[in-house]
Amino acid sequence: MTTNTLTRHWMELTIDGTGVRLSCISRKGAGMPIVFLHGFGSTKEDYADVALHPAFAGRPIFAYDAPGCGESECSDLDRISIPFLLKTALAALDEQGIDRFDLVGHSMGGLTSLMLAHQAPERVASFTDIEGNVAPEDCFLSRQIFLHPHEDPEEFLEDFIARNWAAPFYSSPLYATSVRYKVRAGAVRGIFESMVDLSDNADLMAKFLSLPLPRMFMYGEQNKTLSYLPHLASNGVALAEIPHSRHFPMYSNAPEMWRRIAAFQARAYEDSPSAETACA
């Protein structure tokens, strides 16, 4: 019998010769697993409420803190980047025994998810991208590593926190006040520089639009002016605008976020009645 109880556990990995110890949450169950990748300055707990929502009852769940974030550890913080996080995700999925899954990624986790889906599209049943980078204009957080440079990682992070605390956007103060507890300062530069590089140079939009699977792009109403939204819609991407939110719908309007994810995944399976199911 399945329950809505999440299990907390650790996962030891070696990524490109670097030791990683992931703090994970998971649930066994029946049906297609749901895999969640969190954003910069966030943790796996952003998604823990999935276990309480009837729409996802009984389904396998897997999420973890990225290396250098939350409770997870990394023996060399300088190695952390989006390519490193992609390799971590693939290794963690294999270790967890998850082959095919519905993928949900936010911001940094959305970009990592996009790279994962591009590399292994046959493993992704559907992809919910919550404001993950698909264009250069998405680097409003990560580009600060160049716009407001500081040689001291701790000082950069404190200044980053102050700027975001004062921003006139939904949940910005809530987000900012917890960042220092959720990411190691030494991991920030590699993450941000790689996010900007990929956004500027890796043709992320083409990668996203070419994915041969159901895709939804979720964004807060304060970001409804993103220039590429009509382009996404005209290319078959479902759009989900979350009211009373900007970049953090899981903080500003979680009930609507979960409702839209559940509805999207249900439609994806209605459109693909022969979709494969899996257990974890």
Rank of each mutant, 00 (worst) to 15 (best):
F140K: 11
F192V: 10
L174I: 08
L198I: 10
R180G: 13
K182L: 01
A162N: 06
D197H: 15
F140Q: 04
F160G: 01
F169V: 09
P173V: 00
R180F: 06
I161W: 01
I145K: 05
V196T: 06
M205H: 04
M195C: 14
R184F: 02
L147V: 06
L198F: 15
F160R: 02
Y170L: 12
I145H: 04
K182Q: 12
R189A: 15
L157M: 14
D203H: 15
H150W: 04
R189Q: 13
N201E: 11
I161D: 00
G186F: 08
D159F: 10
P173F: 01
G190I: 04
V183S: 00
Q144K: 08
G190P: 08
A202W: 12
E158N: 07
G186T: 09
K182I: 00
N201F: 08
T177S: 09
K182E: 13
G186I: 11
A167K: 10
F146Q: 08
D200C: 10
R180W: 03
F140A: 11
R189G: 00
M205R: 07
E154Q: 14
V183N: 02
I191F: 05
I161S: 03
R180Y: 06
L157G: 02
A176V: 02
F156W: 09
R189K: 14
E155C: 08
A206E: 15
G190L: 07
G186W: 07
F169A: 13
S178M: 15
Y181V: 10
H148E: 07
F160A: 05
I161A: 10
W165N: 03
S171E: 01
F146K: 03
I161L: 02
P173A: 05
R143P: 03
G190F: 10
L147M: 13
D203V: 12
A187F: 09
L141I: 15
C139R: 10
I191R: 02
G186P: 15
R189C: 14
V179Q: 08
D152A: 03
P173I: 02
N164H: 14
S172M: 15
K182V: 00
N164A: 08
A167Q: 08
D200G: 04
F169D: 04
L141K: 01
D152K: 12
I145E: 07
V188I: 12
